[in-house]
Amino acid sequence: MSEREMTNTERELAEVVSAAAEERGRSKRDKLAIIAWDGHLDRIWPTLILSTTAAASGMEVSVFFTFWGLFALVRPGVRITGKDWMTKALSVMNPGSPGRAKLSRYNFAGAGPWMLGKLAKDYKTPHPSELLEMARDMGVRLIPCQMTMDLMGLTKEDLLDGLEEPIGAATALLEMKEAAIQLFI
């Protein structure tokens, strides 16, 4: 009798242990989740290098573009964005797409980004504009922040094709929670 109860307890214990292991496995997926907050060229660049490398390693990758980071997803041809004079003025001061992104330091009115671009070309390191395309082709999920789109007056037409549906903070947290690696860049 007691032996049988013991067996049941053990079985229950084993179930709990395996459920816990499964839960841990779920919460630590082979996934990289990045919050791309900064729009500077020298921040977007490593974000995209890590994303493409993770995708090349077979990892699942999602990048949530918020605040200044979202401007990296603006279509290269789109100049002025926004819905009123303030958002329009912001878009002039902070032009979209990696091709026009500024450096966080040594920008020197565009001389810095130009030199970095030239060096990258000479050393055959892909520029963020190319990396963004590579990332998309490799299945990296590029996710715009809905709130930033509303705040900055950015429409879906202003942004690149092939992006995920815009999401909010809770969904971004869920993306991070299930990822083995989470970064805020």
């Binding site: 995708a55 590579m134 490799m138």
Partner: peptide, 13 residues
């Protein structure tokens, strides 16, 4: 050959 990070791994993948 001639490519640098992350080029070689992306090409390989």
């Amino acid at each position: 050959r001639g490519q640098s990070c992350p080029g070689p791994l992306v090409t390989l993948a």
